[in-house]
Amino acid sequence: MNSRSCNKFFTYLISIPAIAAVWVIVIVLNVPAFITAFLTTFSIIIPLAASLYGMTLFGRGGFVREDRFQMMYLLLTIAMMIFAVGEVAIIPVEFIPNGERFVFLVGVVHITAFLPLALGILRYVQRVMKTLGHPPKEVVWTTIIIIPMLITVFVIIMTRQLDLVESILDVTVGLVLAIGFGILSLGLLVLVYIFRRGLLVAPISLLYMASALFFVRALIWIGWAISLSNPLSRLIAIMGYLFLGVSFQIANCMQN
């Protein structure tokens, strides 16, 4: 099977029905307990399986620092593993009394997962831009670090002053995640635009969609108090993990 047919196969035959199936099951079986169990199981199994699968695909040659494309996917598999741990951490939060107060800890685990993910994607974006003759200037990196910090501090102060949300920790962690995934989504969107007429757009656009979903997940947490343990939030996460997994598969198809 060549890479083009491989892309089509996995894009149309695997990812779309799988995502649709998740939605259909959740809507049709309108039983809260079942939905929670279903989402809990899938939100753990999917990133874990995708991570292990990705490891076997991209970890064969070990860490090849010069190969930024493979390195990015290898770091994504590590991130997926940590995301799975984060999803596991939601279980005790759901079962202990006043567990919602500890949701920020899940967010902290997600920040830990975000770091390798951001490192892989941003370094890849930087290398691509440099190769195509548009190396990001120092000021861009400085802006990426300073502006989110200023926004975080500003929002935290405002939240405190206006007493908008109960937990300041939730806002802080959610904001870090939202800004982080927002920046990643922007970077990936640039790549999607650049490669819009090539085969490479398939895996990159799936990465973009996953990143955008994680951004939405963090945004609804701080904006509408829909925490990470909420079924809607977990459903969004499952879709994001699925997109990442399919992106792994397409990237691997292109390599082989």
């Binding site: 090849v64 190969d67 190769t131 390599q255």
Partner: peptide, 14 residues
């Protein structure tokens, strides 16, 4: 080298 920067060694070799 430029190809490898964008889509990795394996695809570039292939």
């Amino acid at each position: 080298n430029k190809c490898a920067d964008i889509f990795g060694f394996r695809i570039a070799r292939k």
